[in-house]
């Protein structure tokens, strides 16, 4: 099978899926041209992420990584959420096919983008370096033989 049972479970029964009307921060990453966009909404109370929602346009693993990332940051402090790495997302899902690793990168970046938006809205200063996203102009993995 292409995906593990856990990936399929998060894809078919995504956690925290939906929009949030009163979000404190919204992050959107990816682009439709490449075939995946993640939008993450966070609600922050007492420095903790009290609620999180996501919407994703993308493949099965894009939806699954969004879903598990929301579970991994819910209830966590903002610094904890910022430490969420794409490797942690992949591990939590029990692995992803090699050509789907970029989905986990998007999930990490969606969380960071939502936090950045929260900081911006609330006038909280931060280190720009934390939010330097790699751009998503993917290299074509063209086979050349």
């Amino acid at each position: 099978m292409l995906y593990s049972q856990l990936v399929m479970d998060h894809f078919q029964n995504p956690r925290n899926v939906g929009k949030m009307e009163d979000a404190d921060g919204i992050g959107e990453v990816g682009n439709a041209k490449c075939g995946d966009i993640m939008k993450m909404y966070i609600k922050v109370e007492d420095g903790k992420i009290s609620d999180v929602k996501f919407n994703t346009f993308g493949c099965g693993s894009a939806i699954a990584t969004s879903s598990i990332a929301t579970e991994m940051i819910k209830g966590k402090t903002i610094p904890e959420a910022l430490r969420l790495s794409n490797q942690a997302v992949v591990e939590a899902l029990g692995g992803l096919p090699a050509h789907k690793i970029h989905c986990s990168v998007l999930a990490e970046e969606a969380v960071k983008a939502a936090v950045k938006d929260y900081y911006d809205r609330h006038g909280i200063s931060y280190d720009e370096k934390l939010f330097r996203f790699c751009d998503h102009e993917h290299d074509e993995n063209e086979e050349d033989n």
Partner: peptide, 13 residues
């Protein structure tokens, strides 16, 4: 669950 569809529906795209 698609942010792209949301933008299409809102006329942002």
């Amino acid at each position: 669950i698609s942010p792209v569809w949301e933008e299409l529906e809102k006329g942002e795209r």
